[in-house]
């Protein structure tokens, strides 16, 4: 309104400045509006996760909670709920341990030594990993685990999950290590450090942000993975939270929302916390990946 009236009354120069101010103001409004919509889009589904667990009688609709902890008491009484979180922790940290150690060794070697066919190898594995960890490899993996006696063991699941996430872990870590100046290692080497010492004293500390990111990324993958433990672990005592959660809302005819809501929250908190701790401390950096 003000802009148009100013444009009418003023001369040419003032009218263009006014129009520009108006346009700037408008884009600003649109921008803020768009951000609100985006924020709302991501927040809406999450609202249930933080309200329902604290409601006396949780329903599927988001409503203001009564701040009761009753639902969490129900949770502790369920025989599988808390052990399943424990199992998830075992699977998650087991996989992190395997993946970060073997992955950083491999990424370092790939980053620093010209091995023929290195890039092809990396992309081939990356491609395979995204396909094979899904439904495709269920049957062979199952047969393999039966044959090696690893069926129904946490170790088997940890190894299978590690095989699946390793290519991506190596890919991200290699990208990170490529960005570390080589002179650090060269100067360590001049003083007589052996490769394993260079790795321990120099590369790992400098690559710590990358290692932390990869560890959390792997945890997120494992924490939510449903298919592999579902197929490879048959007894409910050893199943992780992702599988137990699924049984909670499929097996009983009427979903028990008290249990599900409290469980969802307890199940989500460890990864969210860890993620934000790591993100706060190190942030995330990526240097392009595809170079060759």
């Amino acid at each position: 309104m003000t802009a148009t009236s100013a444009a009418r009354s003023g001369g040419t120069t003032s009218s263009t400045t006014a129009a520009r101010t108006a346009r700037k103001f408008l884009t600003r409004i649109l921008f803020v509006l768009a951000m609100v919509v985006v924020g709302f889009f991501f927040a809406l589904p999450l609202a249930w996760l933080v309200t329902a667990p604290f409601s006396k009688v949780p329903t599927l609709t988001v409503s203001w909670p009564d701040w009761t902890l009753e639902n969490f008491r129900v949770l502790t009484e369920n025989p599988y709920a808390l052990t399943s979180i424990g199992n998830s922790l075992i699977l998650g940290f087991g996989t992190i341990a395997v993946v970060v150690t073997t992955g950083s060794l491999a990424a370092y070697a790939l980053s620093r030594v010209r091995i023929p066919g290195r890039d092809g190898l990396l992309y081939g594995l990356l491609l395979l990993s995204s396909v094979v960890t899904g439904t495709a490899a269920m049957v062979p993996l199952f047969q393999l685990m039966v044959a090696t006696g690893l069926i129904n063991t946490q170790t088997g699941v940890v190894l299978a999950l590690s095989g699946g996430v390793l290519p991506t872990v190596i890919f991200i870590l290699k990208d990170f290590m490529d960005s570390i100046p080589k002179s650090y290692e060269e100067s360590a080497r001049l003083y007589g450090a052996k490769p394993h010492q260079i790795l321990r004293h120099v590369v790992v500390p400098i690559a710590r942000p990358g290692l932390a990111f990869v560890a959390v990324w792997a945890l997120v993958q494992v924490w939510g993975n449903f298919l592999l433990p579902f197929i490879l672990l048959r007894s409910p005592e050893s199943q992780p939270a992702a599988v137990i959660m699924y049984t909670f809302y499929t097996e009983s005819g009427q979903a028990d929302l008290s249990l599900i809501s409290a469980f969802s929250l307890v199940f989500s908190i460890p990864v969210i916390l860890l993620y934000f701790l790591v993100n706060r401390r190190y942030g995330f950096r990526f240097h392009g990946g595809i170079k060759s």
Partner: peptide, 21 residues
């Protein structure tokens, strides 16, 4: 040396990714 560093990861990948493929 690079080969030695690669072996553990490649073994896991080979067994649980390439073999099933």
């Amino acid at each position: 040396g690079a080969g030695t560093f690669l072996v553990p990861a490649l073994a896991l990948i080979g067994l649980f990714l390439i073999f099933p493929a």
